[in-house]
């Protein structure tokens, strides 16, 4: 969705400027058609998901998926909101982890990126290598599990959803690349004016890197919003389940059904309570929807972050 909107925004821009300046050209037309096609290919399935979530289950079975629900109903949403507390709590957890996680992660990323980008920092290369090295080699699942559960005892706390994802070497490299283009003279002049390192960082460097921060912040918040595997591994307490794990659970019930029908009948697992297709789609909308709404606010920075390559003053 996100890239499609970005592309859509771009193509709108091209169109607007094209009308004024350029006469009709085949290349232009073809590229418009191409981008409209790509945009549609991304938007249409999403629209289908929305309309399935509003369709009566029996109608899906009889007529298949329809773009315009033959039998409109909000039953699927009622099914999900039957236990609103679970959902609200899950939203709460997801929002808290996303907000805290994104802010902390941006801070750490900016600080690490800034320090390793300063040419007058003596251990710049080893420090950068230390970050870079973890991109190539990392401990893997089991050692991280042992660390988090048996040494840090972070299981069943909200921190196990935030801390492991706090530092991403790739984003630090991106941040470093962005900051290394910042003229050193700015920092020097600040020093001459009597600012100390902390002040330089917070009042000069951070404000100047808003486009990079916004772009990374968007990626980071997507990462935190969509993460469910840490919760699956470390969380036993039902009160700390994020919304995406609820979605994964619902979706995997389908997989369970498709692979084990034999055992279902043997054990008498009550399948009539399993989520229906429209309920699963409604859940997908509820889990992904807020992020779709947030995206437009980031969009202007997003485009800027890609195009603003330097801060020549």
């Amino acid at each position: 969705m996100n890239t499609s909107q970005a592309i859509a925004a771009e193509s709108v821009k091209i169109k607007a400027t094209g009308q004024r300046k350029e006469p009709f050209s085949v290349v232009n037309l073809l590229s418009h058609i191409l981008f409209i096609g790509i945009t549609l290919a991304m938007i249409v399935p999403f629209v289908l998901v929305i309309s399935i979530s509003f369709t009566e289950e029996t109608s899906i079975i009889e007529h298949g998926y329809q773009f315009i629900p033959l039998d409109f109903t909000a039953k699927a949403y009622r099914y999900i909101f039957e236990a609103p507390l679970v959902l609200i709590r899950a939203y709460g957890i997801t929002i808290i982890t996303t907000v805290i996680g994104t802010i902390l992660s941006l801070l750490v990323t900016a600080m690490l990126g800034y320090v390793t980008s300063r040419r007058d920092f003596r251990y710049r290369t080893p420090a950068s290598f230390f970050v870079f090295f973890t991109m190539l080699f990392n401990g893997g699942l089991v050692p991280s599990y042992i660390l988090i559960k048996q040494y840090l005892h972070l299981d069943n706390t909200i921190w196990c959803l935030i801390l492991p994802a706090l530092v991403s070497p790739f984003y630090i490299m991106v941040m470093k690349g962005f900051l290394s283009k910042m003229p050193f003279e700015i920092i020097e002049s600040a020093k001459i004016d009597g600012a100390r390192e902390i002040r330089i960082f917070f009042t000069i460097v951070l404000p100047l890197s808003t486009p990079a921060l916004a772009t990374l912040g968007l990626f980071l918040s997507f990462g935190f919003w969509n993460s469910w595997f840490p919760a699956l591994l470390y969380i036993d307490n039902e009160k700390l389940i994020p919304i995406q794990l609820l979605l994964v659970r619902m979706m995997q019930k389908l997989e369970f059904l498709t692979s084990n029908s034999d055992f279902i009948s043997q054990f008498g697992v009550d399948t009539s309570k399993f989520p229906t297709l429209s309920a699963r789609m409604a859940m997908a909308i509820l889990a992904g929807g807020p992020m779709v709404c947030i995206f437009p606010f980031f969009q202007k920075y997003f485009v800027k972050g890609l195009t603003v390559g330097s801060l020549k003053g």
């Binding site: 591994l233 994964v248 019930k253």
Partner: peptide, 21 residues
């Protein structure tokens, strides 16, 4: 009692076993 939803049962138990928990 530690009930685990079927969605993550295999992953979770295998990780725990690998971690020698």
């Amino acid at each position: 009692l530690k009930p685990v939803l079927e969605a993550g049962y295999k992953d979770k138990i295998n990780t725990m076993l690998a971690a020698n928990e």
